Amino acid sequence: MDSGPTAPSTSGTRHPTLAQLREASHPDVSVHLQSCAQCQSMIAADVPSAPIPLDLPKGLVSESAFKWPADPIARGGMAAIYAAEDRRLGRTVILKAPREGDDLAPGLADMFQRRVTAEARILAKLQHPAIVTIHELGKSTVGWPFCVLERVEGVSLRDRLDELVELEKDGKPRTRERLELLSNLVSIAEALAYAHERNVVHRDCTPNNILLGKRGEATLIDWGIARDLDAPGMAEDALSVNNQDPSVSGRMVTISAGTPPYLPYAQTQGRQAEPSFDVYSFGITLYETVSGVTPFEWRVEDTEVGRAKQLVRFLEWAQSDEPAAPAMPKDLELSGIIARAIDRDGAKRFTSDELVRALKQYLTGDLVFSHRYSVTGRLARWARRNRALAVGVVSL
């Protein structure tokens, strides 16, 4: 009598098959699923009814057109990133290839390939100065796809914020330097608004994924978990902690649907992606940029138990109605902009267009449309914008 597939041993590195994970009826499979981040990610991304297409067209460039380095410059949960030379044009490009390896759960490598292909199709829809450009989609001789992306020169916002934290250890706040970063970040807000107009949601707008150039430009990168709301099969990811592949900086734990503490509660629950998710993530990024901390303090945890407890605390905080403390208590306008961007109720947040408008008004000295001013507040704002005239009036 056929008793069905045998459950894998959970003592080694062997993983259940996708069919076994879908059933998860065997006790050993259930136990394995609770503790294995890879299998959790695969279940979260498994969309049997409408999978992300992997129908690669013919005529794609092959990997032989590039001089690949021995090691990647970064590794993520789904892909490895290489700085390679394009042999045809003599330029340096970024190659993003899906993760491979015998340690991957069955079916996970195929899912990573589909994600890389989906990212290429999304980026092909987006041409914006603050969004990384895709040059082409490639296909290796053994069949796996890879993205050929522009190489963006600069440092991540994450590195810049860490640098400011180090400088502030002397007890002197770097408020001016922090506020100067807002000019860079307006272009990221504009990029999000542009993507939202085209029904694309980034879902991971964090300091790690924002690059700052030498001339004040900023670029939003890593669209690997972005959602094209017009494409079929874009089911949402359930919460799944990826303990094996922390983000490049090692400071955060990436989950399959985003990165805590930058994502709203609705996103952790695998709900339909919407632009308000990006507004929230960008708002938390703004909060950290100007204050040096995030509303929920996310610490590095070295143990499975510590990571699990912290995740539970984060979910409890994200679900609560407790408002975050003002990002800058002495600047009510800026604090108000950030507070509305990170409102727990997605319907009360700015749209991305409104967020761009509010930030530009704040930076140019105009009255911020969303802020309620007192008479003295309006006068103070006018005086700051018309400093020379205000001095003349006072001297009369």
Rank of each mutant, 00 (worst) to 15 (best):
H15F: 06
T6E: 12
R344S: 12
A44M: 05
G283N: 09
E63C: 00
M1P: 12
V116E: 11
V29T: 13
P53R: 10
Y265G: 02
E288L: 00
N243W: 15
T10S: 10
S3R: 15
L54V: 11
E100D: 08
S9V: 11
G306D: 01
E301Q: 15
D103V: 00
S11Y: 14
A308D: 15
L389P: 00
R340W: 08
N386H: 15
Y262T: 06
G224A: 04
G59I: 10
V356G: 10
A191I: 05
A193S: 13
G101M: 07
A105S: 13
Q267W: 05
T219H: 12
V155I: 12
V201S: 00
G283D: 01
Q310V: 09
Q38Y: 12
P207D: 04
T351Q: 03
L263C: 05
G171E: 05
L192F: 07
A380E: 14
R372K: 13
R385M: 10
P53F: 05
V155T: 15
V312Q: 14
P295D: 05
A193H: 14
T351H: 05
V93F: 06
A79C: 13
L181E: 03
R357C: 12
Y194P: 01
L167K: 14
D345F: 11
L389M: 07
Q269L: 12
T268I: 00
K139I: 08
L56I: 09
I210S: 03
D71C: 09
D162M: 12
F112C: 09
L181N: 02
P72S: 06
P57E: 07
P260K: 08
W382V: 08
D230N: 12
V241C: 08
P53M: 01
R203T: 08
T303F: 04
K214L: 11
W298Q: 06
Q267T: 02
V148Q: 03
S291P: 04
L104W: 02
L332A: 14
F277W: 13
P173I: 07
C36R: 02
Q244S: 14
P5T: 11
S320T: 05
I94Q: 02
H15L: 03
T175R: 15
G377A: 11
W223P: 00
E217I: 03
Q127V: 12
R271K: 13
R178V: 03
W68C: 05
G365I: 08
S9A: 14
C36W: 04
T219R: 14
V200G: 03
R385Y: 04
W144P: 09
V312C: 01
I131W: 08
L182G: 04
F66K: 07
R271G: 04
R251M: 09
D204E: 04
V31Q: 13
L18F: 11
